[in-house]
Amino acid sequence: MTTTDSELVTTSLLKKNFPKSILETHCHRGDETVVIDRKDLLSICEFLRDDEGCSYEMLVDLTAVDLLEQNRTPRFEMVYHFKSLRHGKRIRVKVRLDEQDCSIDSIYHLWKAVDWYERECFDMYGIHFNNHPDLRRILMYDQFEGHPLRKDYPMDRQQPIEELREIEERYHYQRDV
């Protein structure tokens, strides 16, 4: 699975167009990866989607990694996986986020799949997506405290689900919408 640099079309295109915002690139096990600056995420994502040479029409996956136990700063990494059906390529874009300021621009308007992925990422890691129109928890319930996939969230912590009173309130029959 060795890939030479000349084959990394997207990496070289990004390096040419955004010379200052590409922090690092690698191709471990054939997965083309670029690490970019947080403030250029929107323009790079737009470029990846719309440029003829890239045309990544599909956002395959969006998630985060917590590197607390590796003592890495910045602590969080956002990971985006894109797929180009036209060119049959994949790319991974990573953005590093500080613990103190873990917010990033939402790419909500670029792919429709982003909405729930960002909600899940917010739910699990507490990363705030600026300009996301509906940033609520998705897998956990609203009363849940903390963000379970953070490494400092204890495995065995238990949280009571809800007060009985609130359940009764919610199921009280109300005709108005």
């Binding site: 029409e57 599909m58 956002l59 395959v60 059906l85 792919w111 429709k112 799949a113």
Partner: peptide, 9 residues
């Protein structure tokens, strides 16, 4: 539609 399906992943 094809486009929506791709955009929705």
């Amino acid at each position: 539609s094809k486009e929506d399906a791709i955009s929705f992943g």
